[in-house]
Design a protein around this nucleic acid. Structure first.
Length: 272
DNA sequence: ACAGGATCCTGGGGGC
DNA sequence: TGCCCCCAGGATCCTG
């Protein structure tokens, strides 16, 4: 569910609510996550104070001043700081009990997400190698991006979803960026012109920034770090708008399956 | 090597 | 109301 704008929103919220808090104990549910929580980490966490919260791609990094917590929200994950007395929802898998009567809760109905403990920075660095995560969209080197496209015969949609090429883009923002750049999702990456490659890179950045400004998109499950919905779903141009007229040219928005994901585009504005 | 498909899950919505 | 099928914002493993 959550892509870069949603994760960025959660990270900003957690900075407000989590920095300065100290873990006093940890409680764990029975069901295993994508990357199982090790009970050995419970003791390690006790006494750790949160120094900062960062984002890398769709990953949330909680800085404990040496050790780190690294979380991924998968499709339905939520990470929130709530009062201890707040009712505990279903599918709450990890609870970090904090000072001041607060808890950090990781909730995830589908359990495609995860939260893991790393003892030090080196462990985090070893996890985020280039074969797992590529450059941030906002720091993407234009020449490097062009090279990445030149290097593959996959379609543009598949490349945008590849976290090792560009970190943080998911199914919604891939479709929205391709519309913004007026590029057809099936175009072969190594066939686009330099101008088109640049246009796509800039479109990704614009769409992501707009979505962050609206605190992400809520279709069904996504909630920010305060438990509130985002607003960018009201600004979708193609995603989830199959059959509705394109806001630019009135051609009905088309939907196909690409790289295993539903893909939305306007055949009038985005030429194959 | 690379591209595409299957897989891990739960829950909601549509059709019957 | 219930059942069955399909679908969903992601990452990773397997196959051809």
């Amino acid at each position: 569910m959550p892509e870069l704008p949603e994760v960025e929103t959660v990270v900003r919220d957690l900075r407000e609510s989590l920095v300065g808090r100290t873990f006093q104990s940890v409680r764990i549910g029975r069901k295993r996550l994508r990357r199982p929580w090790s009970s050995a980490w419970n003791r390690q966490l006790i006494g750790c104070t949160v120094a900062g919260v960062q984002r890398r791609g769709k990953w949330i990094l909680i800085d404990l001043g040496g050790p780190w917590l690294v979380a991924h929200l998968g499709m339905t994950g939520q990470l929130r700081v709530v009062p201890t007395i707040a009712p505990r929802q279903d599918h709450t898998h990890v609870i970090g009990c904090l000072d001041r009567g607060l808890e950090l809760r990781f909730r995830d109905p589908r359990r495609f997400g995860s939260i893991s403990y790393f003892a030090d920075q080196a462990g985090v660095d070893a996890f985020f190698t280039a074969d797992r995560l590529g450059p941030e969209p906002f720091a993407l080197d234009p020449a490097g991006w062009r090279e990445s496209l030149k290097r593959t015969r996959r379609c543009l949609k598949a490349v945008l979803l590849d976290q090792t090429v560009i970190a943080g883009v998911g199914n919604i923002y891939a479709d929205e960026a391709l519309f913004e750049a007026r590029l057809h999702p099936t175009l072969t990456a190594n066939g686009v012109t330099l101008h088109q490659a640049d246009a796509l890179r800039r479109a990704v950045v614009r769409v992501l920034k707009r979505a962050i400004a609206r605190r992400g998109s809520t279709i069904r499950d996504y909630l920010d770090g305060n438990g509130k919905a985002g607003g960018y779903q009201h600004e979708f141009r193609v995603y989830g708008r199959t059959g509705q007229p394109c806001s630019r040219c009135k051609t009905p928005v088309a939907s196909i399956r690409l790289a295993g994901r539903s893909t939305h585009f306007c055949s009038g504005c985005q030429r194959a």
